[in-house]
Design a binder for these strands. Structure first.
Lengths: 205, 205
DNA sequence: GTCTATACCATGATAGAC
DNA sequence: GTCTATCATGGTATAGAC
């Protein structure tokens, strides 16, 4: 009956809580904050969600599931591992640049003070995507451990976004460093070739 | 007069607040928590620190300054850039593995909801070290932008530690992936050689 | 489904005695 | 320098009317 409408309201609420939790984390957001943002009283909130924890969990899952299923599709498409890797990095930088809430929630989840809660969230939201990335990493065995390589690839991309604000106070910073395309090019080049003076350069001038 | 003793007490307090803020962040720690941990009343805390913010700021600076000056010394020693880079990564992985509080505080700082406060902390605690790392990165110009390369190197190392708990729920995880030496070897190899099969030089131009 | 009202506890911070 | 006592505020959550 009203199940459909309830679900609709819940979804509407989650759409508004994503930016709140993304910006301030679990401890930094009060139920009063949430209620005000939505335009309800705190009491009404408790009609839709059992408690703050459930609201938080559903918010994170809501924000993640859309993105990660899209990502999985990108990673799983094609055959050449390096091409697939590049496609993923391009997609990933674009998404992190666009969806700041998604990126920040990832950071908060990794810092969750409740270890079991965090591991549950990771499992429910990232596991599938990680498996795909790791499958990609299998292509570079035995030179690299696929699990470690997956973490390296993700971290390499993510850290440029985690430090967006911090980097502004550091020397050598340019606004181009924040652009997804620039980051993607940099990461892809570094992953492909590493630091060693690559192929003896043809005369590029 | 009692300045010396005051300073001593302050330092003792900071030694105890580091693990608290490292584990739960600014919002997750109350002045009562701190007071109990130290064995004082909350009121006594306010004799030593103006407010919670000052306590937090001094805690972070206290935890960081020791580490970063040590790091700077490592980076600045030697001449061969690749050797220096390897020395830094070895030191960095060892330190992050040993000093979990240091690693977690870094994460919290990057998520600080107060942007000005975060940028101030970064500037006061990381700038010098970053400059040194970036100096290292200059050696790989123009192939890589030194600023971006520095972030990549730091992120590549740090992310393995940020995900220590999360990785336990992901397939392919081994306990060896948490060992500083394993991480260092992996990161160094990836940075040196990249993913491409190391090819003998071709002179095809 | 949302409201008003409220219980009850935790929080940051201060005043003033010792 | 640390205490006891206290305050104002804000926190999660519930009861019950509409």
């Amino acid at each position: 009956m009203s199940n459909k409408k309830d679900h609709q309201t819940r979804t509407n609420i989650l759409g508004l809580t994503v930016p709140l939790f993304a910006q301030s984390g679990f401890d930094g957001v009060s139920m009063r904050d949430v209620a005000e943002e939505i335009g309800l009283t705190p009491a009404a909130l408790y009609y839709h969600f059992k408690d703050k924890e459930q609201l938080y969990l559903e918010t994170v899952k809501y924000a993640f599931q859309k993105k990660t299923t899209a990502a999985k599709a990108v990673v799983d498409m094609g055959s050449d591992p390096l091409k697939r890797l590049e496609a993923f990095i391009t997609w990933f930088t674009k998404t992190l640049g666009k969806e700041k809430d998604f990126q920040k929630l990832m950071q908060w989840v990794l810092l969750d003070t409740d270890k079991a809660r965090m591991q549950n969230l990771i499992k429910e939201t990232f596991r599938d995507l990680f498996v795909s990335i790791q499958g990609l990493g299998e292509s570079f065995k035995p030179k690299y451990d696929p699990h470690m390589l997956s973490i390296s690839i993700i971290g390499l991309v993510v850290y440029h976004f985690e430090t967006t604000e911090a980097r502004k106070t550091l020397p050598g910073n340019k606004s181009s460093h924040d652009q997804p395309k620039t980051i993607a090019r940099h990461v892809i080049s570094l992953l492909r070739n590493g630091l060693m003076p690559a192929q003896p350069t043809l005369h590029t001038n």
